[in-house]
Structure formats: C-alpha cells, structure tokens
C-alpha cells in the first residue's frame, strides 16, 4: 500500500491524450444548471480516465461510470411585495396586499395558497375576501387576474419562476387610526411538505423521489395594512352685539357665529364641508361668511362658500390631520 502524492510540475503539463477522452466524456453529460439547481430527473454521470506507460507505450483506461439520478427538491419562498405598510381606512373594502411566490425547487410544482390574518402581533385582523393570481403584468385587476380557488387552480410553475399573488381584504370599521393589521400568505408544495430531507417516493419529476428542501416545501411572508384615519371635531360659538353695547340678544342685535373644524389623526378627511342652518327668527347678514378670515361671496361660485336662503355652506375639501379651519357668519335677530 503506498500513496504517491502527485505534485504539479512542468514535466506533465501538456497531456493531449487525456484531453481527447475527457472532452468526449464531458459532451455526453447533462448540461442543465440554473439557480434553482439541476433539473429533477436528470442524471449526473462521472467517469475518470487514467493514462500511463507500463513499458508498452501510453495506455488510457476508463474508470467505471457512476450515474446518479437527480431527485426533485421541493422548495418555495413567499415574499411580500409591499415595501411598507399599505395605508387603509376603517371599513374600506378591496384593500390589496401583493406577494410573490417563487418555486425554488428543481421541478415543476403546484402550490396551495392560504392566508393567515389572526396570528397576532398586530392591532386588528383584516378580513381576507379573495386571493387573485396575477396575469403577468404585476398590477391587480379583478377583470383580468384569476380568482384563486384552492384545489381548483393552484398555481403550477417551473423552477426559478415566480407568480404574483394579490390578497384582498376588508378593514373592519372598528379599526382605529394607527392600527396595524397583518396578513401572511403561505404557499405549500402540493406534492407534500415536511422537514428538510423528508421524501415522497416516486413523486418527483422525472420518476425520482420528491425531497423536501431547506424551506420545508412551504413558505410564508407577511404584509401589513396601516389604518390611516382622521376625525373631525366641530366647535361652534356665538357672540352677540347690539346697539346698547351689551351682550343681550335683543331684536336688531347681531350674532356672530364661529365654527372651528379640527381634524385629528394620521390620515386626512376628504370632501369636508360645513353647513349650518340660519336659526329661526334671525336673518342672515349678506356677505358675512368668512373662511380663515377671508370673506366669501354668497353665490355658489368659484369660492368655497355660499348662502342659499336657508343655510350657509363652506366646502373645505381635503383637510389633513392636525389642521383646523375657522368659518364665521353673522345673523341679526328679527
């Protein structure tokens, strides 16, 4: 028994005979390799050659060939495609979270999709209404994307491929400003899931086994909604002035009403309008509406205010949380 340590040296640098045999062997080998790994069902063959001279000139021999069948590896990852929490409002329907499901295995595989919205770690549970499979454009459109029905159209795709999945949810009306609601999307290989190394005999692509990979053949990731709500508080006050320079509400006295709208919260209020009926036994003082100290006309025109004979109206539009609007108008006591 002896071991001769082979040492690289100039003596045997060029050995064309071996190259010929070696290249022939290389050409016969499967040539598939991508990020997800060698395709399931392919064969890895290994043969070595030796050349030597035992006195009769150079001789080349082949070793025995070892063939290994590549089994199907079951691996999947799910990634949330929303870089940040998705804003929502209390009671909103059709709120969309986007996920990407990737087949990290080395064979075609179908995956079952489920959602988990009650795992905790958040402030409320979004109510999942539907799951849609993207048609390839990456944008949610219920008329062109496919509504997912578990067991009926489980997405099946090639190694290294991804599908975009949209999860639609309703935000409960009870959710408050600043609340977070988490939904996880889970994808599980239809062939089976389990601990890494578990195998399903004969169920792999190409006739081999299907072997659970490092992901456990299931994956999940979480996306979150963030409730961005706003509340409006109106405070109305009145000041009476009269010709006697007292605060008595005598006929002919003027009442100046002040309405302060305060918007609170992280969101904003759209289409906010202040409407106030002119009280009985008083008369509106024409041209007396002000917004933020500026006078508005009574006509329904380009400015935000108007008076229609029975009430004043001031359209404030969109007001963000933390802001106030002050509206005043005057009446006289009949």
């Amino acid at each position: 028994m002896m071991m001769i340590a082979p040492v690289g040296g100039a003596k045997h640098r060029l050995l064309p005979s071996c190259s010929i045999v070696a290249l022939l062997a290389a050409l016969a080998l499967p040539m598939q390799a991508d990020a997800a790994g060698t395709r399931a069902g392919s064969t890895i063959s290994n043969t070595a050659t030796a050349s030597f001279d035992a006195g009769g000139g150079a001789t080349t021999i082949d070793s025995n060939r070892v063939d290994l069948l590549v089994d199907e590896l079951l691996d999947v990852t799910v990634d949330s495609s929303n870089p940040a929490d998705v804003p929502t409002t209390p009671g909103a329907t059709g709120q969309v979270l986007t996920f990407s499901v990737t087949n990290n295995g080395n064979g075609v595989e179908a995956f079952a999709l489920t959602t988990i919205a009650n795992a905790g770690g958040d402030d409320y549970d979004p109510a999942v209404t539907q799951i849609y499979l993207d048609n390839g454009d990456g944008l949610f459109d219920s008329s062109t994307d496919a509504l997912y029905t578990p067991g009926a159209n489980d997405p099946s795709f090639d190694p290294d491929e991804s599908v975009t999945v949209f999860v639609l949810a309703t935000t409960p009306g009870s959710a408050a400003d600043g609340n977070r609601g988490i939904i996880s999307l889970a994808a599980a290989a239809k062939t089976g899931t389990g601990d890494p190394g578990d195998s399903f005999a004969g169920q792999g692509e190409g006739g081999g086994d299907a072997v659970v990979g490092s992901t456990g053949a299931d994956g999940q990731d979480a996306g979150a909604f963030l409730v961005s709500a706003a509340t409006v508080t109106l405070v109305k006050s009145a000041v009476v002035t009269n010709s006697l320079s007292t605060a008595d509400p005598i006929p002919g006295a003027t009442i100046t009403y002040t309405i302060v709208a305060t918007v609170a919260g992280s969101g904003s209020v759209n289409g906010l309008a202040i409407t106030d009926d002119i009280p009985a036994d008083t008369s509106y003082v024409p041209g007396s509406i002000t917004l933020g100290g500026s006078v508005l006309s009574d006509a329904a025109d380009a400015d935000a205010g108007n008076y229609n004979g029975t009430r004043i109206n001031v359209a404030l539009g969109t007001v963000a949380g933390g802001q106030t609007r002050t509206v005043t108008f005057r009446t006289t006591i009949d």
Partner: peptide
C-alpha cells in the same frame, strides 16, 4: 511492470 507517467483525469460532471 511499473506504470510510468501515470495521469488520472476526471472531467467535472456539468451538474456538479
């Protein structure tokens, strides 16, 4: 006989 100029070559299988 002793085997001189002994050289062993193994092409890497493409999938390895």
């Amino acid at each position: 006989q002793p085997a001189d100029k002994f050289v062993v070559t193994n092409p890497m299988p493409a999938a390895v």
